[in-house]
Nucleic acid binder design. Structure first.
Length: 220
DNA sequence: TTGTGTTTTACGACCTCC
DNA sequence: GGAGGTCGTAAAACACAA
């Protein structure tokens, strides 16, 4: 057991055996006998705990609360994050602390709790964002695949159209009328419209696409 | 041992509510 | 106006690497 633990242990024992002893001594530690909500901040050099005035023996140094005190405070905090004065006084006397210490502990604990909540919120949002990014990548690659398929289909249509045209020309003279007919019915490249998709890419589409499938079938 | 970063305790300033 | 809240920060206490 180190000195700190010995101190804590002694203080806890004293406070449990003599609940009043701390509050009768603490006013010196806290600086004033009354709560004294507002005090001028001391300069860095003089703001140490020597204000306790406890003879400079270190007894009134700022000290960590004992594990048991913290445990009890945590239990109470779990119960309710707010601290009404009755509960504060009860806790203070149970733990042998100054009510002001209990209030400060709750203030700091609420701040830690809030920080943790913000941290958790941030982690959650970050995860959600990462999921959305992954989803977007997947959809982008799907769009790319579909565009490739569309391009291939268009090329196929074009080559079929050219083959059909070649066949008809070689069968002239009666082919001329058919050629005209075919020319009217076949959506050649120039018949495609161009639109711009959401990414700013140009897309080709034929308003007569499905009719085009029909005209193809008559040659099969 | 010492330098350094983190956590804990405590406080002042300011705000809100009754 | 007082009690109790948040916020920002000082400083002690602590942890830990070098």
């Amino acid at each position: 057991m180190n000195n700190q633990n010995v101190d804590d242990h002694n203080l806890l024992l004293i406070s449990q055996l003599y609940p009043d002893v701390y509050t009768s001594l603490v006013p010196q530690q806290a600086g004033e006998a009354k709560p004294a909500r507002r005090r001028k901040r001391k300069s860095k050099s003089s703001a140490g705990r020597e204000e306790g005035g406890g003879g400079g023996n270190g007894w009134f140094r700022k000290r960590k609360l004992s594990d048991e005190q913290v445990r009890m405070l945590e239990i109470s905090f779990e119960d309710d994050h707010k601290l009404e004065s009755e509960r504060k006084d009860r806790l203070a006397s149970e733990l042998g602390l100054d009510p002001r210490q209990v209030a400060v502990w709750f203030q700091n604990r609420r701040a830690r709790w809030k920080n943790k909540r913000v941290e958790d919120e941030y982690t959650k949002l970050k995860n959600a964002y990462e999921n959305v990014v992954v989803d977007k990548c997947r959809l982008d690659s799907e769009v790319l695949q579909l565009k490739e398929q569309l391009y291939e289909a268009e090329r196929e249509i074009q080559s079929l159209a050219q083959r059909v045209e070649g066949t008809l020309i070689s069968n002239s003279p009666i082919s001329s009328s058919v050629t005209v007919e075919a020319n009217q019915a076949t959506p050649f490249f120039g018949d495609y419209d161009i639109c711009v998709d959401g990414d700013g890419d140009n897309l080709l589409y034929s308003p007569d696409y499905f009719d085009g499938l029909e005209w193809m079938s008559q040659f099969m």
